[in-house]
Design a protein around this nucleic acid. Structure first.
Length: 854
RNA sequence: GCCCGCUUGGCGGAACUGGUAGACGCAACGGACUUAAAAUCCGUUUCCCGCAAGGGAGUGCUGGUUCGAGUCCAGCAGCGGGCACCA
């Protein structure tokens, strides 16, 4: 029995595609363009199953669109800066660049073995000076436009590794690598003014129609716009050195008459000032500072306040003064770091008021409810104002407007909008990143590196022997002359956050060799990305940064669309069962085997194994399967087809050995069917038997169905449809058939090869060639379904009595209602189910159903 | 706590805009071939009653709309995700 030889076949076609330049994107030409992009990988060393899934999905789209007549841009590159390279340098004494480029070489080989249709001539790595020089220029442009600035701020500081960590790199309060508790430190850092674009980023979201709602909602929430008012509470006896009023942000200016206290954050400037004269307050602040920032700590933290003794005057009520507290639940980072408390209409304020015996005055009551009082639940809903002088009788929304109007008239406040979004801190105390191109001069201050001196390249001779930033410890690199005055000055030794590189790489792919960041012609030709594919974990980070970056670049005069990605597909994770031995240590799947009765045991000793949940493949849980081993054992097409088969792309996929075996068996079944059914090419027959026509209908219906499935990224259904057709062809081939039948069979085989081309491209090419074609399938157009064959002449119509299925009838397509009704009523099953009662009504849905109502 | 999504056989999943639920596959079981095994092929497989013909129930739960509901509406439960002392 012959077997499909994927080893020879896959390399053969890969070599042929490459030699023909089949995937090189045409920068001009009459065809419409289509830019499909998968999130490029960090070169960690080897590709993992998540990559295989991601790149398979993208490749199907690329190959399908190419067959449908588009000029497709489908590039691949490397997100090559990042901490793992430095960690490798520390652990293995290998230079980050060497480690990174070796990984790239290995991963490129792995990707090529998958038969992915990339235009490799556009490949680049972001750690190359030819790449990062352009983002240094962009940074200088941002600086010039006021979009980049330096400020002191709180950061996560790892005291062992001596570096700032990103929020994602802090796990349960500890550095992900060192395990040391992370400290908060105030450091001077570079920021990008993403908040400048908060409104645009938010308001453009609804127009991203081909983005998942989930991602748009996440960005919406992340930006977190709140509309309300700033209110000034004047201090009765402002201490010297303090401003004479506390500025408060509120979304409920309508409830101002219910205010009973003002609270400021522990790190509010006024709190610091007061603490310098009040040791008890200082102690309170110090104690509050020790509260963790973890979720659990916040959840259980008691809401506590310290009465400063200061009093603030109510903006509307003359002579009414409110106590000023320092409170541990007020955030300095949000709004103005101060609130007013309205206990009747805010649950947290209510709890605070009860604790410190403050007044609870309701000012909003539900409509038509006169006897309204607050017990232990604040009323946060809509209603009508009372106890509120000029606001009395107004509904909440109107009262808000009226309150703001009065505040503005009295110069006691103004309408305002605040955002949850913070400016993007981009400084990292790391070596393996893009140097920030500025120089600190003792006389001139911060001086941008002149453009002619770009790129600022990383020095190669660095030591990782001691912790800290190797750039800062380098003997000479940072010592330079000030470009302005020529005096001794210091280079910035921080590097960019690696999200900087990935915020514009999609644009660089359009013209990767351009002397400037990108050529306008290439941008006009290819941008925006028509279909972007990647993991949902970037829903906010990378996808928001990129949307910001294009906008910032436009403000600096670059020509690029504001929205970089017009379509987005977020793929699910690749998961696997987890295993532990008796001691609770994780085991790799290959260390586990099943006994005959299905029990999991260790492969070497037969010791019992606990099978855990199906979880995302991760090294720490060892529930990983190496794609290289799968491709070696089954070939790329099997791996690809498995990735596409069972689960829809956006859902999680459980990797199973049995499923892979199933795909491999299918490939061989198909291989034998087509190569062992001897059918020579011949002219089309004039007439067909009924069986022939039935098969032809199946063939053309499949072509149409698969086309629709691929258009809508329903790859699992496309595979199912192709397998159904395979089964139909197999059944037909087993029965005796004449020359006409052989012709139809051949038509079916060709359809399978062509439909399979985007999914399992090597197998498809080989089958196509075996069917006698010399043209390369990858350069052939997509098959068209014969519409006459897609529509049935005879349809099966369901017959129901009172909505219950009682039988079926065969009718000519689009038969008259009366005929359908007559045929349905003639069924014995209908008479039986009606129990002799005459029909009260008959509903006929043409070509679908007849429902007899009795 | 708030917001969003999901819930269909033993499992992954199909089911067009409300119209024959369970396509396709995995697993399991039975059989053929074989000295045997692997591979391959054929068959069964939502559950219940029945030898069968056939009948009944069934898409998380409770109701509703409709000739007809997996699909629409209301309420509830469970699971997953996002955000979280956000004023």
């Amino acid at each position: 029995m012959s077997r499909y030889n994927f080893r020879e076949t896959e390399v053969k076609w890969q070599a042929l595609w490459e030699s023909r330049g089949s995937f090189v994107a045409a920068n001009d030409g009459p065809k419409p363009k289509y830019y499909v992009l998968e999130m490029f990988p960090y070169p960690s060393g080897r590709i993992h199953m998540g990559h295989v899934r991601n790149y398979t999905l993208g490749d199907v789209v690329a190959r399908f669109m190419r067959a449908r007549g588009y000029d497709v841009l489908h590039p691949m590159g490397w997100d090559a800066f990042g901490m793992p390279a430095e960690n490798a340098a520390i652990e293995n004494k290998v230079h980050p660049a060497k480690w990174t480029y070796a990984n790239i070489d290995h991963m490129r080989t792995q990707l090529k073995a998958m038969g992915l249709s990339y235009d490799w001539s556009r490949e680049f790595a972001t750690c190359a000076p030819e790449y990062y020089r352009h983002e240094q220029k962009m940074f200088l442009d941002f600086l010039g436009a006021g979009l980049a600035y330096r400020k002191e701020s709180w950061v996560n500081w790892d005291p062992v590794d001596q570096t700032v960590l990103a929020n994602e790199q802090v796990i349960e309060g500890r550095g992900w690598r060192s395990g040391a508790p992370v400290e908060r430190r105030r450091l001077s850092q570079w920021f990008l003014r993403i908040t400048d674009f908060a409104d645009d980023l938010l308001e453009s979201l609804p127009a991203l129609e081909r983005w998942p709602d989930k991602v748009r909602t996440m960005q919406d929430k992340w930006i977190g716009r709140s509309e309300g008012a700033r209110v000034f509470f004047r201090l009765v006896d402002a201490p010297s050195g303090a401003s004479d009023a506390i500025e408060v942000f509120t979304t409920r200016p309508d409830t101002l008459f219910g205010a009973s206290f003002v609270a400021i954050a522990v790190d509010h400037p006024l709190a610091a000032l007061l603490a310098s004269r009040d040791p008890k307050l200082a102690a309170f602040i110090a104690e509050s500072g020790h509260l963790g920032t973890s979720e659990a700590a916040i959840e259980t933290a008691e809401k506590r306040g310290y009465d400063t003794g200061l009093r603030a005057t109510h903006p509307f009520v003359k002579g009414h003064v409110l106590p000023v507290y320092v409170a541990n639940f007020v955030l300095m980072e949000y709004g103005s770091g101060a609130i007013f408390g309205c206990p009747a209409h805010d649950q947290r304020d209510l709890e605070f008021a009860r604790k410190y015996s403050l007044a609870v005055l309701p000012v909003v009551r539900p409509k038509d409810q006169d006897d309204f009082a607050i017990a232990d639940q604040a009323y946060e809903g809509d209603g009508v104002l009372f106890n509120s002088e000029f606001l009395n009788g107004l509904p909440v929304a109107e009262a808000k407007r009226a309150a703001i109007k009065r505040l503005e008239a009295d110069r006691a406040g103004r309408g305002d909008t605040v955002y949850r979004l913070r400016d993007w801190g981009i400084s990292r105390q790391r070596y393996w990143g893009c140097p920030i191109p500025v120089i600190h001069c003792p006389d001139c201050g911060i001086v941008p590196v002149p453009e002619k001196d770009l790129p600022v390249e990383l020095p190669e001779d660095v030591s990782f022997d001691e912790p800290g930033n190797p750039l800062d410890k380098h003997p000479t690199w940072k010592h330079v002359a000030c470009p302005t005055c020529g005096k001794r000055a210091l280079r910035e030794t921080d590097t960019f956050d690696t999200f900087f590189e990935s915020s514009w790489y999609f644009a660089r792919f359009c013209s990767p060799q351009a002397p400037q960041a990108f050529s306008q012609k290439a941008i006009r030709r290819w941008m925006p990305v028509d279909q972007y594919i990647g993991g949902v974990e970037h829903a906010v980070l990378h996808l928001l940064y990129s949307r910001f970056f294009t906008r910032a670049l436009r403000r600096c005069g670059y020509e690029i669309p504001a929205e970089p990605f017009s379509g987005l597909l977020t793929q699910g994770m690749v998961c696997h069962e987890t295993y532990r031995d008796a001691e609770g240590h994780w085991l790799f799947p290959e260390e586990v085997t099943r006994t005959e009765d299905g029990k999991a045991v260790t492969a070497d000793g037969g010791a019992p194994v606990t099978v855990g949940r199906v979880e995302k493949m991760s090294k720490s849980r060892k529930n990983v399967v190496d794609p290289a081993a799968i491709i070696e054992a089954y070939g790329a097409d099997t791996a690809r087809l498995f990735m596409l088969s069972d689960s829809p792309p956006e859902r999680d996929l459980e990797w199973s050995e049995a499923g892979v075996d199933g795909v491999w068996r299918y490939i061989n079944r198909l291989w034998r069917l087509i190569t062992e059914t001897g059918i020579a090419a011949q002219g089309a027959p004039d007439r067909f038997s009924d069986a022939d026509i039935a098969l032809r209908r199946t063939i053309h219906k499949t072509i149409r169905a698969v086309t629709e499935d691929l258009e809508k990224f329903r790859f699992n259904r496309a595979v199912a449809h192709i397998r159904e057709l395979t089964n139909a062809l197999s059944d037909f081939a087993e029965k005796p058939h004449d020359a006409e039948g052989a012709w139809v069979l051949r038509e079916g085989f060709e359809a399978i090869a062509r439909l399979l081309a985007p999914l399992a491209p090597h197998l498809a090419e080989e089958l196509w060639q075996r069917l006698g074609h010399s043209a390369v399938l990858v350069e052939s157009p997509w098959p068209e379904a014969d519409l006459d064959l897609v529509v049935d002449d005879i349809v099966t119509v369901a017959v129901q009595v009172n909505g219950k299925l009682r039988g079926q009838i065969e009718l000519p397509r689009d038969a008259a209602r009366e005929d359908a009704e007559k045929a349905a009523l003639a069924l014995p099953a209908v008479a039986k189910a009606s129990e002799g009662k005459p029909p009260r009504k008959v509903i006929v849905v043409p070509n679908r159903v007849v429902n007899v109502v009795v």
